[in-house]
Design a protein around this nucleic acid. Structure first.
Length: 700
DNA sequence: ATAGGGTTAG
């Protein structure tokens, strides 16, 4: 056009700027802006509005604002200028400033918003959960009649839905004269995110003339995943196959992949990792995106075998060089590391994060790193990660305090709490739960009681059943069973299973059969299918040598088909991780392991170890014969660690259940006669064995 | 100009 000798006028420029935002190109936009200034259009509000919009969409908020200020100084800004700058702030996720500008426009400058203003500002109210402001905007929309516009109506529905006010959203939705698929989806999504799957499904969308689309399905699948509704998930899958997915031997398109990713996530979260994996495998490597990998890794990390998660993470690098893990991927993988106490793998991820400068998204990943290091036995490195974080949120603080709690370092947990108060950050119910847990596992009874008394009075956080369970635990460990029972009677709500478990464990620890039976009965009334309750009670009887009662419990378990989960321990050897079950002979060095163990047992017997045979029966099914006390998984893992690790290296063992009492005593003795520190994580906490004693000091 | 997927702490 220019080569023909034509000059662009103020109609031309806005179109060209719009083109720049289609394929966001800041450099092109900026050079056009320069042309505008040179061509003498710097005072033309049409053209300048287009410049503001272009900079906003290209992510150059600062330039957008300068241009807008320029317009204001010339006094030529109009409604479109305001809309453009508000939209620019929304693109930059700064809903606060967007709202402030909108207020300034309506109140100070008395400019009346149009449809576009409302559709810009309602998502701002939604993202800030500012339902009061949203309501004001809604009121204006009604008064001005703009609410009849389907875009405005949809934005209002979505605003209420995102603020968690589904009743209001529904009222607006019902009154809408015209509804389109977006209106329906806003409702479906709202109910889905509130975990109200039935409401989401009961929307009679199919009869309305609006066909569910990809967005509808993705929302529904996410809802099925979050409440574990496998059957509804399968129905949604069927619908997707019939009407949405278009896979006649062709490669999946972008929309197909979104549904497929949702399906993988749904099946994994509904405990069907195998189906999830089948769908994952059905997508060819080149068609998978980073979400496909992430949902499968996350599925294994949380609902399947966490080892598969780590395998898949490695596989992702090997099979597709172009896929780069993002912060979701790394977080999911770190969750798997934490579950397995896979310190080596976790360190590699940490190194990868540092090498690849994931600076802006560090918060989630760093929180996961703190958790991974603490759960892998190295809470001190967790503290270092914490110290180096540019930003922290409440989870960062609680993760660190939880870490110290697990390691029995209650003083450190309280120190961190003190630092958190200085920030200042408001402690919530989880903060106190974590602190009480730390006090309980460190034997800090007085501190625990003090915190419990102050949490409601000084911080306005009312204790829930979990807090009471922690206090029962605290009193119970300290042997004050009467106090524990008194507290349960004082609870303002019905005691939940966790409360009775805490009492039962304490009774087991202090051999109080009567109260233990009472707790067990309450527990079995509430949830009869839990193997842990039966095992605790059985152990209580066994400890008192009441074998008939032990047999009775076993019979009850058998009759109701409840199986004790098998104990399982794994240890970080020099060449990877080795896993052991009780009496396990499957390892290639099995013979050597058993010989090592027998030798150790002989040597510690000399220095005072007495096997506690009352534990002998706990891990054994009736069919198994012989005394398997010396073949418990944690002892086998320890022997293997001693065999394979260099002298002086710490031996890191992880057990899926609580460590057995006899093993605890034996390992304490063994730590006296070997060079290694033994760091053992069980389902309750960490035990650091060194020179004959354990860091838990009896507070399991 | 409005709707959508995957992550953390007990």
């Amino acid at each position: 056009m220019k080569s023909l000798g034509w000059t662009p006028d103020h109609y031309t420029f806005p179109f060209v700027f719009k083109a720049c935002t289609k394929f966001p190109s800041l450099s092109l936009g900026a050079s056009l802006h320069a042309t505008v200034c040179r061509s003498g259009f710097a005072s033309n509000v049409f053209v300048c509005n287009a410049v503001v919009a272009m900079y906003g969409k290209c992510g150059a908020l600062h330039h957008a604002h300068n241009m807008f200020d320029d317009l204001c100084q010339q006094g030529i800004q109009d409604l479109v200028s305001w809309n453009s700058i508000v939209s620019a702030y929304m693109c930059a996720f700064d809903a606060n400033t967007a709202l402030a500008l909108f207020s300034k426009m309506t109140t100070l400058h008395r400019i009346s918003p149009d449809v576009i203003s409302l559709v810009n500002i309602l998502p701002a109210c939604a993202s800030l959960a500012a339902s009061l402001r949203g309501k004001q905007v809604h009121g204006f929309a009604i008064r001005s009649g703009l609410v009849d516009d389907v875009f405005v109506g949809n934005a209002v529905v979505d605003m209420y839905a995102k603020c968690g006010r589904m009743e209001e959203a529904n009222k607006v939705f019902q009154r809408m004269k015209f509804k389109d698929v977006v209106s329906w989806n806003a409702m479906v999504t709202g109910y889905s995110q509130a975990g109200r799957l039935e409401h989401a499904l009961s929307l009679q969308m199919l009869n309305s003339g609006s066909r569910p689309n990809v967005v509808t399905l993705v929302s529904l699948l996410s809802a099925c995943a979050s409440v574990g509704a496998l059957l509804h998930g399968k129905e949604t899958h069927c619908y997707a196959i019939k009407f949405i997915l278009n896979l006649d031997g062709q490669d999946p398109g972008d929309d197909d992949l979104k549904v497929i990713n949702g399906l993988i996530d749904m099946y994994a979260k509904c405990q069907s990792t195998e189906i999830a994996r089948k769908i994952f495998d059905s997508v060819s490597t080149k068609d998978r995106d980073v979400v496909t990998w992430t949902v499968m890794i996350g599925g294994y990390a949380q609902h399947g075998d966490a080892n598969h998660a780590l395998q898949l993470f490695s596989e992702m690098f090997q099979t597709d060089k172009s896929i780069k893990p993002n912060d979701f991927t790394l977080s999911c993988t770190l969750v798997a590391c934490a579950r397995l106490a896979a310190l080596r793998f976790g360190r590699q991820i940490h190194a990868y994060v540092l090498r690849n400068c994931y600076d802006s998204v560090m918060l989630f990943v760093a929180n996961c790193l703190i958790d991974m290091y603490s759960k892998s036995g190295d809470v001190d490195t967790g503290q270092i990660v914490f110290d180096n974080m540019p930003q922290r949120n409440a989870v960062s603080w609680t993760s660190l305090m939880t870490g110290y709690g697990m390691h029995g370092r209650g003083e450190d947990a309280l120190r961190v709490f003190g630092e958190m108060r200085e920030v200042p950050l408001v402690p919530d119910s989880i903060t106190f739960l974590v602190l009480l847990y730390a006090c309980s596992h460190s034997g800090m009874v007085d501190h625990g009681i003090d915190l419990f008394n102050r949490m409601s009075k000084d911080f306005g956080v009312d204790p829930g059943p979990e807090h009471y369970a922690c206090m029962v635990d605290l009193w119970g460990r300290a042997g004050c069973l009467g106090e524990a029972m008194k507290l349960i009677n004082e609870m303002p709500m019905e005691p939940t299973p966790v409360v009775w478990v805490a009492l039962l464990s304490a009774c087991r620890l202090h051999s109080n059969i009567e109260l233990g039976e009472f707790a067990a009965n309450r527990l079995l009334e509430l949830e009869s299918g839990n193997d842990g309750s039966y095992t605790l009670l059985s152990n209580l009887y066994a400890n008192a040598r009441r074998w008939k009662d032990v047999a009775r419990i076993r019979y009850m378990m058998k009759r109701s088909g409840i199986k004790k989960r098998p104990g399982c321990s794994w240890v970080q050897g020099r060449k990877g991780v080795a896993t052991f079950f009780v009496g396990d002979k499957s390892h290639s060095q099995s013979q050597l392991i058993y010989e090592t163990l027998a030798d150790l047992i002989q040597r510690i017997k000399v220095i005072g170890y007495v096997p506690q045979t009352s534990f002998a029966l706990h891990d054994v099914d009736d069919e198994e014969k012989g005394d398997l006390l010396f073949e418990h998984s944690e002892k086998l893992a320890l022997a293997y660690g001693i065999l394979t690790l260099p002298p002086g290296a710490p031996i890191r063992i992880t057990k899926n259940l609580r460590i057995c009492g006899d093993c605890h005593s034996a390992i304490s003795y063994i730590s006296k006669i070997i060079e290694h520190e033994i760091i053992l994580r069980d389902s309750s906490r960490f035990h650091h064995f060194k020179n004959g004693s354990c860091s838990c000091k009896g507070y399991w």
